[in-house]
């Protein structure tokens, strides 16, 4: 395949950055999007140019490292798929493809297409955990969990924390990420002791990090490579209102 890539190049956090055009040729239809960028980078290195920096790790669609806004859509045109699992056969030969980093104040660009997603770590640190005694794992059947709760919690736990929800949101909100964590932990019996403090603390961190507020546009859930449903945000809102106005918070 022959393609024209327009890639965001930015030397560092202080650099202004711009879109740079790169023609590539001889790309296999079976290559993943990241493999296609690998080919480009090999060419750039051979020519003595600086390769394009982008995040990646497992390349199996589960680590949450890969990102990229491709033609205006986080993780590209294929639904429920991370960039690393996106294949070039989803594009037309001769197509012009725009590649940009996640855009959010809370996700500053480190270099080219790499952004700092430390804000998500700080949100997790402020409440995305349970307190449990360490040591041998307890017998799994000692704490029964109703099947529907287990299913919903598992669905929310699929969140890989990639940040596509923020990149897709017209408000730059991380509510889907936040809702996934609050739903996942808040549905399990082990998550109950900290349930009300967790939601308040995590939302306060979310707001302090400079993310926007949710206005229920639903863009996040469509962009999410794991298909996290929008109702996790409803649950986040519900728990937050109950914790604060309802006085459940300690």
């Amino acid at each position: 395949m022959k393609l024209t890539l327009r890639i965001w190049r930015q030397k560092g956090p202080g650099d202004k950055g711009a879109m740079v055009e790169y023609p590539v040729d001889g790309i296999s239809e079976d290559a993943s999007f990241l493999e296609m960028l690998d080919v480009l980078n090999e060419e750039l290195i051979a020519k003595g140019e600086e390769p394009v920096a982008f995040d990646h790790d497992c390349r199996e669609g589960i680590c949450g490292m890969c990102s990229l806004v491709i033609n205006g859509t986080p993780h590209g045109p294929e639904r429920n798929t991370t960039t690393c699992q996106l294949h070039m056969r989803k594009f037309r030969d001769g197509e012009v493809i725009d590649v940009e980093p996640w855009r959010a104040k809370a996700f500053p660009v480190v270099k080219d297409l790499v952004v700092d997603r430390g804000a998500f770590d700080r949100i997790i640190k402020s409440g995305g955990f349970i307190s449990a005694p360490t040591g041998t794992a307890p017998e799994a059947h000692s704490t029964p969990v109703p099947k529907p709760d287990a299913d919903r919690a598992f669905e929310a736990a699929e969140c890989i924390g990639c940040g596509a929800c923020v990149a897709a949101c017209p408000n730059g909100s991380a509510s889907l990420f936040l809702g996934a964590k609050v739903t996942h932990l808040g549905l399990m019996p082990q998550g109950q002791p900290e349930r009300w403090d967790r939601v308040v603390s995590m939302l306060e961190t979310h707001d302090a990090e400079g993310f926007g507020g949710c206005t229920n546009t639903g863009e996040c859930t469509v962009a999410c490579p794991k298909g996290i449903p929008l109702d996790v945000i409803g649950r986040l809102n519900h728990d937050y209102i109950k914790a604060t106005a309802g006085g459940r918070k300690q």
Binding site: G72, R103, K105, P170, G212
Partner: peptide
């Protein structure tokens, strides 16, 4: 929301939802 995304996308943002 405006403060949350100081640098806009170059590519036209597509709405899917």
């Amino acid at each position: 929301a405006r403060r949350a995304r100081p640098v806009k996308y170059q590519s036209r943002k597509k709405s899917h939802a």
